[in-house]
Design a protein around this nucleic acid. Structure first.
Lengths: 135, 135
DNA sequence: TGTAAACCCGAGTTTCAAACTAGGGATTGC
DNA sequence: GCAATCCCTAGTTTGAAACTCGGGTTTACA
């Protein structure tokens, strides 16, 4: 396991939750966290934490009280996966070599440029996929 | 921090080490772990563990005793980054959603296909870059 | 043949962030 | 007013990566 590319539970569950919201987009209906959690995501408590940043960023809208819950504020066709991942995973830190104050190696290691290239490909890919495609 | 894409120390240091070997390729010279560790990689003990899989796979060759060390067995232009990453990070596990017995979600989540696509792009990119390019 | 330099091996321990829990607010609809 | 829901914050747990340790084994060289 491990692997260079690891999709955190946080990220996966956030995407699934948004997928559920996307199915309801246009109906005006709200989806509650307990409802979403029952379709076998993580526990409700954890899922609430995941949704927080999505709300702060204005991607979803919350209503409290009975009949409340969450719903999308925008058409899922306009929401890219890249945007979601950035919100869920925090400040899209680059590979370790760049996230730190320079590389631990003295004369900056040659792999840095390569990671940059890869990062570019990834961002490019995630930027062209939308939430509507996974719902 | 975190970020979807995280290059482990193991992977980074392994690449830097191989980069040092690549510079010496053709000279027949060996590079010792203590020498490599002194140019600010991780400790020698840890670096030794990293090199293990590279040797078992026949990518590097070891000689013991004074004047010994490691050297590449192949031209660095024929070694792809993808190959290295696979050796260092273990059985290139896909994203969590696939590594487990299916997705934690009941009816398999819609994001799986997307992660597959992304994985393909990444492998494609890593498969076209060689060790020679980062040395 | 002895000694030291290096690789080799496997079993620990440490560290740290992600994952999860808990407990209580603050709104809102009925 | 009451219950359903979101909201906040502070913990605790867990697991894997990172690192250490203590010894082996092979090799060069005097």
């Amino acid at each position: 396991m491990s692997s260079l590319f690891r999709v955190s539970r946080r990220c996966h569950d956030g995407l699934v939750f948004l997928g559920l919201l996307a199915e309801r987009y246009g109906s005006g209906a709200f989806l509650t966290v307990p409802q979403a959690a029952s379709s076998s995501l993580s526990g409700a408590g954890y899922l609430e934490q995941i949704v927080g940043p999505l709300r702060e960023a204005g991607m979803v809208e919350a209503r409290r009280g009975p009949g409340g819950g969450y719903r999308l504020t925008r058409d899922p066709r306009t929401i890219t996966i890249g945007e979601i991942v950035r919100l869920l995973e925090g400040p899209t830190a680059l590979v370790e070599c760049q996230a730190r104050e320079g590389c631990p190696q003295k004369r900056g290691c040659g792999s840095r440029k390569m990671w940059n290239t890869l990062q570019g490909r990834i961002n490019e890919t995630l930027g062209t996929m939308t939430l509507a495609e996974i719902a």
